[in-house]
Design a protein around this nucleic acid. Structure first.
Lengths: 257, 257
DNA sequence: GTTCGACTCGTACAGTGTTCGATTCCACTC
DNA sequence: GAGTGGAATCGAACACTGTACGAGTCGAAC
């Protein structure tokens, strides 16, 4: 059978005999380059230069740029930490996890370009998912609902943070602070919203508000929404015997896990 | 004052006198290319060829590739339709909106790479946001909560759909169907999850499940979670006078809007 | 008929990811 | 110590990319 799927994680890493260049080293350098100067700054030539090696030496340790990016991506997944749920409530664990991701993404804004392009099956991503699912197991979810709950939380956090990141990148590239950029963008916004007077009014109203705190409130709002929604489902499943579809693990053996 | 922010929407479009090439034409061709062959297929040379014009002719109508992409992105935003909330419940409107986005994204998988990179301030994005906010206004949200609710829903939908898209792209590039790809990916997954026996068990358990319906269930799960969460907040705000922070619009004038 | 602006497009440049083959270097055996 | 084989490095080259520039074409207004 032909191998239709390939990824860094499917290949055996090269055995290192005398590694003047190592995978870890390469990944670290790439990460630094990405964090410092953004996605466009990472070219194989620049990476080679930063490592003090020839441009194409990297290709012995990594099959291609995509694989390199898979590796760096998983490195970032390694920064998504979760508390041990047995030490707090699941709401606390989930909430601090969400805030942690948000901040990790702020440190590595370029990741947003890969999430949704590259499937995350690296070891760090796996560990994170494992712990997140365990959190929802402890919360009382059963069967696939554990995965669904985890995925819902992740989806929300990624989804809200994405526009925040694009905003921040724009801001930093322009060399302004948030409120200056807000002012600079206002005419374009008003022009775009010209046909929707209620939007214009709304923008005028918010102009005095600090943009960053508004974003933070936005994040918190959605997060509590989701946690409330999850909790509601938990309570709903707890009280009635539930004639729920798609949850095959209501019998004795599988539900105990 | 220097212009620190630029976008297609800030520039006046060129006045067309005898347009053998038009913006609309260019955008359509780019969209077709993107839909048919993905992000990498769109190069200015290929676009020129498809249009039957010189490679650099496009640059008279569009400042650069980024602007072109902003235009195409907004075109996709134009496909995100919302029902008139006065014809159903807000839950219905929001839910069908979410499903609509999901399907539009399936038609244009490449967009995921820009959301979170390019701020969406085109006319179609504006119209969509205007209608979405109106939906939540009708639902009973007041002040910034309307925006927060809209952004929460959008964030979730984008966030869940992203991995789905990466999955589908992978699948189509490999030329397999979902379950075949699932089988092909299994060894990599098991290897990655080797240290987490509960994950392995979980994967084994789901292997028999159809991947696509699992995804659909996942989407529905999170969506009802969010709608439940929003509804809960609505009810909470309705009954008690609420000593909520960060919502400055509890007085008479602003809250009526 | 001339002029001017709208519009097109060929050429060129700097840069990209990656392939290929030659080269270096080290651990090992004889 | 000489020799060998594979690990690792790297320079040159290829086929691309986005875009700046300037020369060219065309249609309408004067």
């Amino acid at each position: 059978m032909k191998q239709h799927f390939s990824s860094v994680w499917t290949r055996e890493p090269r055995t290192a005999k005398s590694p003047t260049l190592s995978r870890a080293q390469i990944v670290r350098a790439a990460l630094e380059l990405l964090d410092a100067e953004g996605l466009d700054a990472l070219s194989m030539r620049r990476l080679g230069a930063k490592l003090g090696s020839g441009t194409t030496s990297v290709y012995w340790h990594v099959a291609n740029k995509n694989e390199l990016l898979e590796l760096v991506l998983d490195e970032v997944y390694g920064e998504f930490t979760i508390m041990d749920v047995r030490e707090t409530t699941w709401r606390n664990a989930a909430s601090s996890f969400a805030y942690g991701i948000r901040e990790a993404l702020f440190r590595h804004p370029w990741v947003m370009s890969f999430i949704g392009t590259t499937p995350a099956i690296g070891p760090n991503a796996m560990r994170m998912m494992s712990r997140l699912v365990a959190t929802f197991d402890h919360a009382g979810f059963r069967g696939p609902d554990q995965d669904y709950a985890a995925s819902t939380l992740m989806a929300y956090v990624m989804g809200v943070t994405a526009p925040e990141l694009s905003w921040r990148t724009l801001r930093d590239e322009a060399g302004l602070d948030s409120n200056e950029l807000n002012a600079a963008i206002q005419p374009a916004l008003e022009k775009a919203a010209a046909d929707y007077p209620e939007l214009t009014a709304r923008y005028r109203e918010y102009r005095c508000m600090d943009v960053d705190t508004a974003r933070a409130l936005n994040f918190e709002f959605g997060l509590t929404c989701i946690l409330d929604g999850l909790e509601a489902r938990l309570n709903r499943a707890a009280s009635p015997p539930s004639s729920r579809v798609g949850s095959p693990a209501e019998d004795d053996s599988a539900a105990s896990r």
